[in-house]
Design a protein around this nucleic acid. Structure first.
Length: 889
RNA sequence: GCCCGGGUGGCGAAAUCGGUAAACGCGGGAGACUUAAAAUCUCCUGGCUUCGGCCGUGCGGGUUCGAGUCCCGCCCCGGGCACCA
């Protein structure tokens, strides 16, 4: 290679933001044109599937928090690629969703257009970060060729009896005239506008995820996931073993089932409690108590979640007038209703054993109901005893320990037809329908006779109709139900009239299987080929927000297990290893005003946070007791007073409160990667997000550290080109022995840090090398080559530039990871700390091969030791090879 | 209330198996270069100190020759769940 050619590739000097952007665009173009990151099945090479949770492309674009995970997986993908793995690393769009539809309602823009534009923005931003995705495998969940397979999977679920219809309440907002998703309802009010929301029953599709509860629970054990996430899933599934017990209602032919985990305490069941909305309440309540029960139910249904949760210690309820027979004692016990019993769990009814359950105890005390001790070991005069012990006052169970008593009771119940052992779950079936437009239509027809027929596979996908108006009709209708010509259709096979389903699938549907499609994105015959599935699956590393701990990850696991049963996938679980990046938070400044309903008016009063008190759900002005609303300013909008407090720029009397929260448009605390790239370039941004700290740890966003990373890249650049645009002279080979060792330490350190998923410390090792490598001798060529390759996962654009300058023709991304001679890591002499009684007092330098006797002798001679030891003898000398000597007096 | 994380310099952090606490970076200080500034480079930077040392990883105990790391009891912060029978 000639000098002039080298210099020519470095026309951009010095390395400033402008240069960085020029270099970055050049290599992004090169990667795209050369298809550097395109992969395919290669049985000769070991595969690795590294996956990011794909984003919902919102109108705001990416903020600096999103890329933390993307950058980390990109570093790993690039590293593993250089280690010879065939790495599948892809990106796509979870593009159905509410904001685009809401925007359509407000502006009339078709959600498809909004979505398309947002995707463009996201893709541009991700490309600008230099992420090494195989873009030829990009996925969009709203694409008809994708929707087709989402609908196909739904049909499989239906065929297997896992999808059924049920009348379930939805969130209906009368003011907005629309149905809202759960996530759009906050404290019983609509997220937008704060209008009241009522529960309105509607026919809904449900998926029988509960059929898979046990498998979803058991298979967690083998996954390499954070324990906290596994725990959350276990709790969500909430399996508990117990018994179902049947109680006969006196003077009727009705029975009430209860679920209990403590069948051994049946002899102590002194009353029964039904949830206020239990289906039998009306039938069993006696005339005398009808009014009281109706009143209580009414009050209970109006209590907000928050209020109910706030005082769980105070138990309320009312007697129904009915009695049931305790099958064990044969005695009649009263039936009450109380809101401490939830209709959604178990059977919505309990047998109350006040002596051995805290809640029943509190209730019994409040209403003076009998408390009968049936398990010894506690003091039931003062509190419920919930632990295990020996049964007493329990007929045939007496003297048995809790576990034995449980099984004995279950046997007895089953033998006498009073109930049976059973398992209960907190997990409910998955409400799978949404009354929205922008989602997958259900691929089925409602026939005139009330039966349901699946749309033939050859006619998939069922596409959304075009609507000219997205505004809600206000009449308990879904948007699709207004597309009359679409809803009304005929069965193509029989010609008989049919109706399409007016619901759409929830946003979760598309994300349940997208990782499969990446493996084989253009397959028209199958959702994934057997070959691609066998080769690429499972996902080896899945990185994404912990906020998806339960829903997305549980739903995707459920679908995967169904596909496993259909023999479409060969692994029981889709995601082998999971990591959650910590959240990057934004900073904003808060004050309040009295314009609670966001009216357009002039005379608005503004208040400092110090003048405002926060009550349960509302902010109140301390003096006027008037409700006020929080307002936010961005950090670039505020000013400071003479004492340094943040103040409102227009109203200097208003002192602002600094708040650090999740980045969101409404808080005005969003920082875009575009700004950072503009000022420092993508390589600096990548480096900084990695260098900030470990992946799992969140932190408030601050740009303070970026210049340090930027300067590091400047030094790296200057290593190869001096201020005059000249290449400094390189020494051939590895350089001096010292330099060779320095390079070896860098290679070894960066490699092991990457294996431990710690890019932050890997970067510091690159910094050390760069700081010291040409202090005393010219830069050695082999060192520079290793550095370029080690740098490339972190700052890929600059690394390509350096790599090219070193005379290489192909991409550094496709080069091989440097290896070293391990012997270079050990040195001839070692420094050892010398401690006296565990405190460091001196230091010795000994030969690496020195014997313990020698080390001991040297240590005892040091000044630091002599000072403490005097002429005496140590009682003990501990030598930790290569580390320290501890002399115990 | 219960269950998980976490608490280390002015700041972001590091310390891999119980073995020299604070690597690397930011910020700060001093100096070199410069007419000057910026940039760059070099050095210093946990606290106290009578210059011998002493103290120091949220607090209090313990185990150990030796504890940021292990054990017991607390405090604070973040997240999750929340009457689940």
């Amino acid at each position: 290679m000639t000098l002039s050619r080298l210099v020519a590739s470095f026309t951009d000097m010095p390395y400033d933001a402008q240069t960085a952007r020029t270099i970055e665009k050049r290599w992004q173009k090169y990667w795209k044109e050369s298809q550097t990151f395109r992969v395919g099945i290669d049985e000769e090479r070991e595969k690795l599937y590294i996956l990011d949770m794909f984003p919902y492309p919102s109108g705001t674009g990416l903020h600096v928090g999103h890329p933390k995970g993307y950058i980390t997986t990109d570093v790993l993908s690039r590293y593993k690629r250089m280690r010879g793995f065939n790495v599948l690393h892809t990106m796509g769009w979870d593009a159905f969703g509410l904001p685009a539809e809401q925007y359509a309602i407000e502006t009339g823009t078709h959600p498809r257009d909004t979505t398309r534009a947002n995707i463009e923005t996201y893709r541009r931003q991700l490309v600008a970060l230099g992420l090494s995705y195989d873009w030829s495998r990009e996925i969009d969940t709203t694409d008809p060729s994708y929707v087709r397979w989402t609908q196909w999977i739904f049909q499989k679920l239906y065929e297997r009896g896992l999808a059924y219809e049920e009348e379930v309440p939805v969130n209906w907002c009368p003011v907005l005239g629309t149905v809202l998703a759960n996530e759009e309802v906050i404290d019983g009010k609509s997220e937008r506008g704060g209008h009241p929301v009522i529960r309105q029953p509607m026919r809904q599709w449900m998926l029988k995820i509960t059929d898979y509860a046990d498998r979803l629970l058991d298979d967690l054990d083998d996954l390499d996931w954070p324990e906290s996430i596994k725990k959350m899933q276990r709790d969500w599934i909430g399996r508990s073993e117990g018994a179902r017990i049947r109680f006969e209602v006196s003077n009727t032919d009705l029975f009430i089932d209860v679920f209990t985990t403590r069948p051994d305490t049946l002899f102590g069941a002194t009353y029964m409690v039904l949830a206020p909305d239990h289906e039998l309440v009306e039938q069993i309540t006696t005339k005398k108590y009808l009014q009281a029960v109706a009143n209580y139910s009414e009050v209970a249904s109006r209590k907000s979640e928050r209020v109910r949760i706030a005082d769980t210690s105070e138990k309320t309820g009312t007697f129904t007038g009915a009695f049931v027979t305790n099958p064990a004692t044969g005695q009649e016990i009263p039936v009450w209703i109380a809101d401490y019993v939830l209709s959604g769990y178990g059977t919505g009814a309990i047998m109350a054993v006040p002596a051995h359950d805290d809640r029943d105890y509190a209730f019994a005390k409040a209403y003076d109901l009998p408390i009968v001790e049936v398990v010894s070991g506690g003091d039931t005069a003062n509190a419920a005893f919930v632990g295990n012990g020996r049964s007493i006052n329990s007929g045939f169970l007496n003297t048995l320990e809790t576990d034995a008593a449980k099984s004995s009771m279950i046997n007895w119940l089953e033998k006498n037809d009073f109930g049976e052992g059973t398992v209960s779950y907190k997990l409910r079936d998955w409400l799978f329908a949404r009354q929205r437009y922008w989602g997958e239509p259900f691929p089925l027809l409602h026939l005139v006779d009330g039966t349901i027929k699946l749309v033939p596979e050859t006619e998939l996908p069922v596409l959304l109709p075009e609507l000219d108006d997205y505004k809600p009709s206000g009449n308990f209708e879904t948007p699709l139900s207004r597309a009359k010509e679409w809803i009304t259709t005929t069965d193509s096979e029989t010609g008989q009239p049919a109706r399409r389903d007016a619901n759409t699938m929830p946003q979760w549907a598309g994300s349940c299987w997208y990782f499969l499609r990446y493996c084989d994105p253009n397959n028209d015959e199958d959702l994934i080929s057997r070959e691609a599935e066998r080769y690429w699956m499972p996902v080896d590393l899945y990185v994404g927000g912990a906020e998806h701990a339960v829903l997305h990850l549980l739903y995707a696991r459920f679908w995967h297990k169904v596909l496993y049963d259909l023999e479409i996938v060969h692994t029981k679980e889709p995601f082998q290893k999971l990591l959650n990046p910590g959240m990057i938070l934004g900073r904003s400044y808060r004050y309040y005003d009295d314009n609670v309903n966001d009216e357009k008016r002039q005379n608005v009063s503004r208040y400092s946070p110090s003048q405002v008190e926060i009550e349960v759900e509302r902010a109140i002005h301390s003096e006027t007791r008037q409700e006020v609303k929080a307002r936010y300013l961005r950090s670039d909008q505020i000013e400071h007073d003479v004492e340094g407090f943040p103040i409102h720029p227009e109203f200097p009397d208003i002192r602002l409160e600094e708040v650090t929260e999740k980045m969101s448009k409404s808080r005005g605390n969003v920082v875009s990667p575009d700004e950072i790239i503009e000022r420092f370039g993508a390589d600096s941004m990548r480096l900084y997000e990695l260098f900030m700290g470990p992946l799992e740890k969140g932190a408030p966003w601050s740009t303070d550290g970026i210049p340090g990373c930027f300067r590091f890249l400047q030094r790296a650049h200057r290593l190869m080109v001096d201020e005059n645009g000249m290449i400094p002279e390189l020494s051939q080979g590895p350089g001096t022995n010292e330099q060779e060792r320095l390079t070896a330490r860098m290679v070894s350190g960066v490699t092991s840090d990457l294996e431990r998923l710690q890019p932050n410390t890997a970067i510091s090792k690159l910094m050390v090398w760069l700081r010291d490598i040409n202090k005393n001798s010219p830069l050695p060529e082999e060192g520079a080559s290793a550095f370029a390759r080690l740098l490339s996962p972190f700052a890929p654009h600059l690394a390509e530039e350096i790599w090219r300058t070193l005379g290489n023709e192909s991409s550094v991304a496709l080069s091989s990871w440097p290896t070293i001679d391990e012997a270079l890591l050990t040195s001839e002499t070692i420094r050892m700390a010398v401690q006296v009684n565990g405190k460091r007092r001196d230091e010795i330098e000994v030969s690496a091969t020195a014997s313990e006797t020698d080390i001991r002798k040297r240590a005892l001679m040091t000044e630091g030791v002599v000072r403490y030891l005097g002429k005496g003898e140590p009682s003990r000398v501990i030598i930790v090879p290569g580390r320290l000597v501890n002399i115990v007096l």
